[in-house]
Design a protein around this nucleic acid. Structure first.
Lengths: 343, 343
DNA sequence: CTGTTAGCGCCTTCAT
DNA sequence: ATGAAGGCGCTAACAG
């Protein structure tokens, strides 16, 4: 019995050399064929390809990476905390990313950000021959991350305009100002004039932009823009903030709520206070999530193309990796309003 | 000027050889030090380690993989479709997986399942020296996947007991029967006796187990178990099914709903029919998601330790990879009941 | 258009 | 306990 020493490394039995031997050519030729180098004789290429397929040849990713320095993988940097939120918006762009990745023949590696430990791991991984590029999907802005990533030597695309140095970064964002204006205009068109806002945490650019949009719409129509209350993007935050708002400005007849999560809390407070929606008070919310759908009454809400954003991140990253220069891609997508009973 | 040809491959400038040269030892020794081989002289090890750290040495993953056949990465197989559901339960175990992965010093690669194309990609990737193991988180059972994966040559752990061949697979599951019993007992304790169920799609083992649990509890208490209606795990499914249920069995005073998603739909139908919850009808739901929290009234719901399950999947996989044998790990976690106003 | 030949960076027997 | 050297599988000059 031939003593074939068990090949520990790799599970892929067939190598380039095997195919080359079977086809009676050199490994270089097989390599060219597999990589579709155009200069090979078509007939030969066809023959080699057939043999390779028949032998079940699959290239060894590690070997290829070692030889080329490219990995065919991109990192997706997300936060554990974001995912753990019961209703987190991270999964929608994540979905977009995943569906787009297939088109570009890339592999996704998940890297966690959040704790210092995770970040050091992240940088370490990026520093090795880990990935060819990275995408960042973080709900809470982490202002120091961009500068850390800048040194990693790979192109990076952010979801949402990063807080810090701004203009030098590539990102895909939605028009939060425009979305807020959409919501506010709808309230005005519904005949409301004492329009308040439940604003989110000021540290988030999205929250600030929505406040700005609300303000500018009201200003354009000569309406007061002082009915403001701030709170967390959560049901509890929504009810607390709505309670304070109602106490401070009992005359409100319209509310723009900066997130559905807050919206569901706000609705409960409104109901408890005997304000009928939309009879006494019109409400427009933000995110157009399932929470808006199941709310009572169902909430009109500004829809964000989250999945599309994920897809575009991949497209942007792919183009950055192709040019490998210092190019910057910045894309801002429009929002739309989904109308439901609360208006 | 010395003509240092630009090193295309890899970004990690410092190699084992560099460290070896700086320390005046062989690359073999440095390799041993970095891999904590116990036979090296402690003093030497310390010295080498210091030098390596100071030079910012990081091992090249591709080179190591090429040499050892191990990758230090595990695949996470999920479905694009699951993620795209507005309220999907995939992200909770995902979160658990991610948080556990750090502890084991593993890297996560996302692989998509769903379309035939994605599956062939998946198998191809697994077939290469892609990963050392795999975890499967699929909300819809895909019965042919286990047998495909069986040939991939790496250990696999499932979330939820797989439908098919069952006993040969490793999995982490929750006790759906027990959870349903918990819910049903609570309904009985609340003084209800005409207890119906909104059951889910029969193709899901979870849905079937919940039905079984409901049945067995009722049987033990000598109560009728014929008030059954089936529907999709969605708000629309919930309202449709609840409507049918009410028409068929107008006398119900308790309902066990197999998912919060259905629950929110069911609640609306109940309200529209003039049935007060919990005064006329008690409702207990399943999943303990944010939907239960924001429902009106807030729903009592069976809580599943989804994140914990994700963590345990990683633990299980790690132990499988360590033994590298044909061992099987099967773990079933208990559910608990979160009480809210609907009871 | 195809073959030859060096590595890519690391691990690992085999000697010493 | 340490060093020398071959090889993991593939790619990319460079010849021919």
């Amino acid at each position: 019995m031939t003593e074939t020493r068990a090949r520990r490394p790799g599970r892929s039995v067939t190598t380039l050399a095997d195919v080359a031997a079977a086809a009676g050519v050199s490994t270089a030729t097989v390599s060219r064929v597999m990589n579709r180098v155009p200069t090979v004789n078509p007939d030969l290429a066809f023959r080699v390809e057939a043999i390779a397929r028949q032998m079940g040849y699959q290239f060894n990713a590690a070997a290829r990476t070692l030889a080329t320095g490219r990995t065919g993988a991109v990192a997706l940097i997300i936060s554990e905390a974001d995912l753990s939120q019961p209703y987190s918006f991270t999964s929608a762009p994540l979905h977009g990313v995943l569906s787009a990745v297939a088109r570009h023949d890339l592999q996704i590696v998940i890297l966690l950000s959040g704790s210092p430990q995770q970040e050091s791991h992240l940088l370490e991984y990026l520093g090795r021959t880990g990935v060819d590029g990275a995408m960042v999907i973080l709900e809470d802005e982490i202002s120091h991350l961009p500068e850390l990533l800048r040194d990693a030597g790979v192109p990076v695309v952010y979801l949402g305009r990063p807080l810090g140095n701004a203009e030098a970064q590539s990102y895909v964002d939605v028009d939060n100002v425009g979305g807020a204006r959409l919501a506010t205009e709808a309230l005005i068109e519904a005949g409301r004039s004492r329009i308040a806002i439940l604003a989110g945490n000021d540290r988030l650019t999205a929250a600030r932009d929505r406040l700005d949009g609300w303000r500018s719409s009201l200003a354009e129509h000569g309406l007061d823009a002082h009915r403001i209350a701030r709170g967390a993007f959560s049901p509890a935050g929504g009810s607390d903030t709505m309670t304070r708002l109602l106490a401070a400005y009992p005359d409100i007849d319209g509310v723009f709520v900066s997130s559905d999560y807050m919206g569901s809390g706000a609705l409960q407070v409104l109901a408890a206070a005997g304000r009928r929606v939309p009879h006494d008070v019109s409400v427009v919310s933000y995110d157009d999530s399932v929470l808006a759908e199941v709310a009572n009454p169902p909430l009109s809400s500004v829809h964000q193309p989250l999945e599309l954003m994920g897809e575009q991140m991949v497209d942007a990253l792919a183009s950055l990796m192709a040019t490998s220069g210092t190019a910057v891609v910045q894309r801002v997508l429009p929002s739309t309003l989904t109308r439901r009973d609360s208006l």
